[in-house]
Design a protein around this nucleic acid. Structure first.
Lengths: 254, 254
DNA sequence: GACCAGAATTGGTCAATACCACTTCTTTGT
DNA sequence: ACAAAGAAGTGGTATTGACCAATTCTGGTC
């Protein structure tokens, strides 16, 4: 067992003896106390930070963090999601611009690369705490006159339906594990390379018209996917049903 | 911009000039060439390794890795999953023992902590490459006479059904992003702290009897979850349906 | 009492060095 | 010719020392 692992255990013991929010001793003190170099101690602390036990604050200290919320991530609208579990959702629009789609987005939205799309970057919060970053692309032709104010506090899907008469019919979503990059870490207020979930979603109308492409980074220390399983039989040796069926917001019609 | 970021860019340029499988220069050479300390270079390389650009092999070198496979993870049996996408699934049993359940497992399986459970740790492979680690707990009473040989190449669910007459009725699964720890990294042959997906699944019979508790670590560089979305309406303001419905193996009955 | 400037403290980054553990290749002995 | 032993090269870990950057505290000034 390396010194780093040993230090890790010692720090874990220390954490258990403290309350949430309390600071652990400064690195320079702690490393002499544990008989390891500061770098080694930092490596151990890095682990614990990454695992959600501790939170670093530059210039201030390293603090015991809240235990991971046993939170369930519903694969649906963020707003409804948060409301359902008794939290107050909010969002801060970081960016709203009309830009050319570009090759990648154009492919997803099935438009020309030169076609204008509305690009919206939003920080999603629950009870004031950052939860996810959402980057949304919508063909500009679909949402004329959209402003940042329209998005505050409201569900984007509600807006689409009520103002523009657009109802989501289908969608596809991929989810993969990742770690946050610099920009994402800064926006979310988490350390660089924190575990996170990357969601990419495209939705379309019943008629097959592409509506949006969304790329979301969810904090791994706050989110967990929960799925109920029930058996289902294969037909013709193939699964004709979606691998996972997700509930989209409570539209009246699909 | 820190030296680490600068080194990162330089190494990325280097990677682009090389073929997949080729080694980058040794750390000791590269760090003098880039004018940074080895520690700094390693930090930069660590990033790139974590992001999947490079693979480290202790005692051998650091190599340019294959681009991430755009692979879809079906939320179903590993074996069928791999077959469906044309790969050859296999597994290596790392451990098979009968042990007391313990508090945590007992709670999940709804048995007493002293009750014996079969603990099985398997490395799952596809086309000979490690894909996931699966740790499975089953009440020993359910599967008398189970041996390691029973598990080779076969689906565990098939075994349950045909030999023991146990059919999975329901299940619940949670998925969260994580990074691999030492043991997992060693078993999977990936670097420490690689992005990964942690699956925890409990399944039960139609009658509600708990059958298994499975904890799986999936390589984040090989897997991606894919979900098809279709609208569904809320009833009484509540979602009466599962948040995500997963296809379990092709049983004839549910 | 309120406010501002600077000192002190804390985490963040980097350098240079040493040694360990694993792999690979060479050498040597049979 | 083969195999075992060893040397060399690689990534992995740790130490020490130094400086930078953000925050917080302190004391002086108005």
């Amino acid at each position: 067992m390396g010194k780093q692992d040993e230090a890790r255990e010692r720090v874990l013991d220390l954490i258990e003896s403290l309350q949430v929010g309390q600071a652990i001793p400064p690195e320079r003190q702690l490393c002499v106390r544990l008989g390891v170099s500061r770098l080694t101690l930092r490596a151990a602390v890095d682990q614990l930070v990454q695992e959600g036990y501790l939170v670093r604050r530059h210039g201030s200290g390293t603090f015991v963090s809240q235990p991971k919320i046993a939170q369930q991530l519903a694969l649906t609208s963020f707003t409804e999601d948060m409301v359902r579990r008794g939290m107050v959702p909010s969002s801060r629009t970081l960016e709203l611009a009309v830009v050319p789609a570009g090759a990648r987005i154009a492919r997803r939205l099935q438009v020309s690369p030169e076609d204008p799309v509305v690009k919206i970057r939003r920080l999603r919060l629950a009870d004031g705490e950052s939860m996810a970053i959402e980057t949304l692309h919508v063909p500009a032709a679909l949402v004329p006159g959209l402003t940042a104010a329209d998005l505050e506090g409201k569900s984007f899907y509600e807006l689409l339906e009520h103002r523009y008469g657009i109802v989501i019919g289908y969608g596809q979503q991929t989810i993969e594990p990742t770690v946050t990059n610099e920009e994402e870490s800064a926006d979310l207020g988490v350390p660089l390379h924190s575990p996170a979930l990357l969601f990419e979603r495209t939705t379309s109308t019943e008629a097959g018209r592409m509506v949006e492409f969304v790329r979301s980074i969810y904090r791994g220390d706050r989110y967990r996917l929960v799925a109920e399983l029930s058996p289902q039989r294969a037909r013709n040796g193939r699964y004709s049903q979606p691998l996972a069926q997700l509930v989209v917001r409570g539209h009246e019609e699909g």
